[in-house]
Structure formats: C-alpha cells, structure tokens
Design a protein around this nucleic acid. Structure first.
Length: 637
RNA sequence: GGGCCCGUGGUGCAGCCUGGUUAGCACGUCGGCCUGUCAAGCCGGAGGUCGCGGGUUCAAAUCCCGUCGGGCCCGCCA
C-alpha cells in the first residue's frame, strides 16, 4: 500500500507517529505561508498542514498549486492541533498532519459540479454522467458502505439460519404473464429469445422441488416497465424460499433478518414482531395498501351519517353505491384557504369529484357544505371523529376505490404539512405486515379474474371452499354474476403477505400451491386453459408432479429499504406527496427515461452485430438510428 | 400512450407574470496579496447565441407554437 493509514481513521492515539496518507484534495486554504489541505479518502477527512518552516519551500509551493480533487500522497507526523484551532465538525478535528513530503499522484481538471454534500440540487443527469465524482461525496459513499454492510449482514444471518445462497439463471424463459421482460436474442437459435428474469420466482420454486429446503439470494431482477422514482429497470431483491413452512415461519424469519441486519449494519434497534394489519383495515382506515403507521390521522366512514343529507353530492353519491369517508385535522388555523385548495386538487388527482371541507367550531360561514348540514349531522360527524376541539373535517364522497385512494393521498400530504413525521425518514422505522389480501381481482378489461400476486399463490386454507364455489359459479354461469363485488372469487383471501416500511412497500411473498388439484382450481378461476398453462409453466407443473414439498417465501426490495435508511425520500413540489428516490442507493442507476448518461447506453449497434443476432430493424426505426448516428458518435467521442 | 412541472456562464439561483440600458447574485475558476484556517480572508480578471427551431413585435431570456433533454405522476409494474 502506498499509504499507512486511512485519513478519517486518525485519532489522538497516533500523535507523534509518522504517517503516509493518500487521498483527494477536498479543499485547500492557502494563507501565503502556511497552507491547509483537507485530504479525503473513503474513510473521511483529515487536515494536512504545509508549513514551509517544517516541510521546506519546495513542498509548500507544491501544496499551494494543487486544486480540488487532485490525488496526493503526503507523509508527515500526526500532531495535536494547537489549542483553539480544533474543529469539532470533523471526526479528526482534534489532530492534524504536519506534512514533510508530498507527491502529486494525479492532478484533476476543474470539476463539472462541486463534490460536496452541502451543495444541493445539482442536476441529476450531470451527477449521473459524472457518477464517479458524485460517488466521492460522503453521503453517496455512506450509501455504498451501508449497502455493503447490510447485504453482508443478510448473508451472515441467512447462513446462520441454514440457508444456501444459490445463483439462478440470468438467461431465462419468456413467460407472457406479469411484467414485460427484456429480450435477449439467441444467436445460435435464430428467431428465438431468452429473457432476463423479472425475478427468480420460478427458479426458486424449482429449488424447493430439488430439496434445497432453505434458499436465499441477493438477486438482480429485470423488468422492462416504465421506471418511477422508486422503480428501476434493474433492481435487487433479497429473495427467500423455504420448504415445510407456514406464513408465521416467514414472518419470524424476516423479522429476525431485518432486526439483525439493521442492528449490525446501521446500529438500529427495531422492535419485533412487526404489527400485522389486514388488507381490509389498511384500505378502510388508512386509504392505502401500504399504510404509513408512524402517524394517526385515521380515516372514518361517515356514509351512514350523511346518506340522507340535503347536500346532494353526498346523498346522490350514496344512492349510486358510493361511500363517504374522511379525516379530521385539529385546529382551524392549521389549514388556510390555499391549503384547502391544494388538498382539493389532490383528491381530484385520485379521480374523486371533490373535497368537502367542514369546519368544526366557528367559521361555519366559510364552508359551502357546512351550510347544508343540520346541527345533528354536524354533531354526529364531530363525534364520529372524536373531535372535541375545533378543526376541519375533510370528506370525500365517491365510488369506494376512488375515495380510498383520495383519502390515502390526503393523509400523506397532511402528515408532511403538519409535520407528523420526522424530516428524515430514517429517524423512525415503522414496519408492518399486510395480510389477508384477496387472492384474485377482477380485471374489467380482460373480463376475468387475475391473480393479485402470481398464479402459484395459495389461497387461505379456510377459503378453499369459497374458491370451489366461485369456480362452480364461473363455469355454470349460475349464482353471483362474474365480476360482481360479492362474487365468491373476490372474497377468497390469499395466503400471502406484504411488508411495508414507513408507507413504502418493501416486499411481499406467499405460501405457494404445491397441490396439483388446487393449482388447477386456481387456473380455472383465472380462466387459464390447461393447454395454455402447460405451455406457459409446463416445466414447473411437471416438476410439481415429482414430490414437491409445501413451500413459501418472500422477496424484499433491497433498494427501497436502503433508500429509507439513507433518507432518500423527497417531497414532490406540486402534489406535496413524498416519494423514494432509489437512484440514491444504486451505484450506477438509469434515468427515469431508462438511459445511462455515463455510458450513453442504450446505443445503436453495428449492422453486422444485428445480422449475427438475426435482427432486422423496421425501416422507420432504422432511418431514425441512421439520422441520429452522427450526434451519438460525437457525444461519446 | 397520457398529464403536470423544469431548462439562464463550470455549479446553484434571480430576472419571465407586467417585453425596452452593458442579463444580476453566490460558489467555482484564473491572476495578485496574505503564516492557524477549516464555507479562510482581501483585491482584480475571464467566462452567457438565456436548451434548440420557428412565430408575434420597432424590440423577446421574458409572449405564442413546435421540438429536444430532464423530473414527478397516471396507465404499466402477476
């Protein structure tokens, strides 16, 4: 090694010791005589003092000539800083290194943007183009380090629990259901394609049939869907599958895993077991299938109170099968006219017709709705929300799904507006299991029931009779109409679970079907003909015929967990809604248009390469590629 | 596929609504001064076809249309 110590690791213990440091120039303070250089490596920063009386004129001159991010090798002696010059903001602020010699290992060009955490708002595309500079910032370096420590802890824990990490193929088979997949043309099999796996789901189930019993993998998943702030075309899952288990075993394992990894990697103590909440309760009380339970602001249903209201928007909605739900915000002064307008805007975003704002206490005249309500109705509302103090009741009346979404969004925005959650999202970690989701949902466009999770998810054992009844109705055309909200198939619960952290879905899984007749029943429920099932999943179904053990598992979204831990939450300035930017915890992420500004990918390829892969571009695309070719060539030099 | 928002020296922002001197500020950068700073300080300089194209106008960073790039969202993500 060219260096003897890490910059950030020097302490008072090294005082008097000769050290050799290598690192980057964070900052230089040139006083004409003495020059200070903050030297940074991945461990941190230490102040190096170049005093011509100690290091000689030549070295002092060299120190004055360096610029930001130059790479230096410095040898010197560790000294306690003179009294009064300590820097409490620096971990190494008690000491400094008095340089004796210095070498420039490499100079650096002026920077395209400052490599500093305290400069906010640098254009993200610029940061991505120079990702190697951006990653030098302490915050980014810490994210990389945390990611390493976390995955290391995951591997240690899973190993202790008897799990084997097994790698699964990256070149996989296309399956038409689920996420759109990235295609990989097969050169040796013209006209055929591999796909990149959207997850190792089927492979891990095959490993269960193979008798591995306890499998895990820190697995890359690839999905060719439109990205979002918390979705990348490639992302990482902690993928787990176990044989001979119930859901309780999975809960216990995951709670143990997360509490261990958080303790070891981040020094965080989190209480276990995690809270469990039914999907039903999440939707009705929180307006979300991934509730943030760090704050209250619970949703109340007031349909019964207002169904006869003289305010037509209420009574008409209820008559048409809609519902009325809302929230209570204490304090009339907390929401001004502008706030109320913004909240109304937000409800419209959910497709709801509007937001009724009812003041409790005075200021009755300011509310259009309040004038239509009787004293009795207002009293009933106030008592429903348990509001003894003045405040605002915010109500949405519409069809159930829109109301749920709208009040869910209101809850999130209000929590930020009223500062009910800490500024930094890592400060409080609220884990939650969501259970008892429906197995199937009605797809109005396809006119059939589709799995909410995937077709191998087991129904809740008690609900199997319901599933049988539903399939009977479906196939005989008798009983409840297909698609009706009361259809038995909609009431079948899945033996599945989702895990939520601070309002973000960080994972999900299920107990799988290992019984062939049950599997066929589910295929009938989703109207997947036997032939088609065979074509799509034939190899898995065949595997299940050779002694498949009961099994189940889960996949945890590593990027999202780390994004919460790294405070990569931002607030959308337009809507006031929070979102997670997982790009902050990925070393080389893609933009939200699925491009990589650093390498320029995706790029066109030579015609020769296309030909080898038996690919011909459609004429319009070919023309466009030709036209752009010059520009792309230039920008990549 | 659709909606909303953003684009001004290397970086971050102001100016735009209400068109009108040399487009302003901070950081960085370059030169000079300075021996204890740590966002060092002081003095001086360079650096902008206001993303691009078109239109309206005597006059466009500013208004209008288009386009490109970016961000967030809806659809999509079993």
């Amino acid at each position: 090694m060219l260096k003897s110590h890490p910059c950030g690791g020097l302490t008072g213990k090294e005082i008097g010791n000769q050290v050799v440091l290598c690192g980057w120039v964070q900052r230089k303070r040139d006083h004409g005589g003495v020059t200070f250089i903050d030297l940074r490596d991945r461990s941190g920063i230490v102040q190096v003092v170049f005093d011509p009386r100690e290091c000689g004129q030549e070295v002092a001159t060299l120190a004055r000539e360096v610029g930001s991010e130059w790479v230096l090798k410095v040898s010197g002696v560790v000294h306690r800083r003179p009294p009064g010059t300590e820097n409490p903001r620096l971990a190494t602020g008690e000491i400094e290194v008095r340089a004796q010699e210095a070498t420039v290992l490499n100079p650096a060009s002026p920077l395209p943007f400052p490599v500093r955490d305290d400069v906010k708002g640098v254009d993200e595309i610029l940061r991505l183009k120079y990702r190697y500079l951006d990653l030098r910032r302490p915050a980014m370096r810490q994210a990389l380090e945390l990611r390493h420590r976390f995955t290391k802890a995951v591997r240690d824990f899973m190993d202790q629990q008897g799990f084997w990490e097994v790698e699964t193929p990256i070149l996989w088979k296309h399956t038409p259901e689920g996420a759109r997949e990235f295609l990989v043309p097969s050169r040796l099999h013209p006209g055929r394609f591999f796909v990149l796996p959207q997850s190792p789901q089927i492979a891990k189930q095959l490993l269960m049939v193979a008798g591995v019993e306890k499998y895990f993998q820190i697995a890359r998943c690839l999905r060719d869907e439109d990205p979002r702030a918390d979705r990348q075309p490639e992302f990482t899952q902690i993928d787990v599958e176990m044989s001979f288990v119930t859901a309780d075993d999975i809960y216990e394992l995951v709670e143990g895993l997360l509490s261990y990894a958080l303790k070891v990697a981040a020094g965080r103590d989190i209480p276990t077991p995690f809270l469990k909440m039914s999907y039903q309760e999440a939707m009705t009380r929180y307006g979300s299938d991934k509730p943030d339970i760090r704050f209250g602001l619970l949703v109340e249903d007031v349909t019964d109170i207002l169904k006869e209201s003289s305010f037509r928007a209420f009574s008409d909605t209820v008559r048409e099968g809609g519902i009325i739900r809302g929230l209570f915000v204490p304090g009339l002064e907390t929401l001004g006219r502008k706030d109320l307008a913004e909240l109304t805007e937000l409800t419209k975003r959910a497709g709801a017709k509007g937001l009724a704002t009812i003041p409790i206490g005075d200021r009755q005249q300011e509310s259009l709705v309040a004038r239509f309500l009787t004293e009795k109705e207002k009293e009933a509302l106030a008592s429903r929300f348990g509001s003894e103090r003045p405040g605002w009741i915010l109500l949405v009346a519409d069809q159930a799904d829109r109301v749920e979404e709208a009040v869910g969004l209101l809850r999130l925005k209000l929590a930020r507006h009223r500062k009910l959650v800490p500024e930094r999202c890592s400060q409080e970690l609220a884990f939650l299991w969501i259970v008892d989701r429906p197995l199937l949902e009605w797809d109005a466009r396809e006119e059939r029931y589709v799995p909410l999770h995937h077709p191998f998810t087991s129904p809740f054992p008690e609900d199997i009779p319901l599933l049988e009844e539903g399939v009977r109705m479906l196939e005989t055309g008798r009983g409840e109409k297909k698609g009706s909200p009361d259809h038995p198939l909609r009431r079948v619960r899945a033996y599945a679970y989702d895990i939520v952290l601070n309002g973000y879905e960080i994972g999900g899984g299920s107990i799988r079907i290992h019984d062939r007749s049950l599997q066929e029943l589910v295929f009938r429920a989703i109207e997947l003909p036997r032939e088609e099932a065979k074509r799509k999943f034939g190899f898995l179904l065949e595997a299940f015929e050779y002694g498949a053990p009961p099994h189940g598992g889960i996949a945890l979204g590593l990027d999202r967990i780390l994004a919460v831990l790294c405070d990569a939450e931002q607030t959308d300035p337009d809507s006031g809604l929070p979102y997670l930017n997982i790009r902050e915890v990925i070393a080389f992420p893609k933009t939200s248009t699925m491009a990589d500004p650093l390498t320029g990918a995706p790029t066109p390829v030579d015609e020769k390469v296309l030909k080898e892969q038996h690919i011909t571009l459609v004429p319009e695309v070919w023309a466009k590629v030709q036209q752009e070719a010059g520009g792309i060539g230039e920008s990549n030099e």
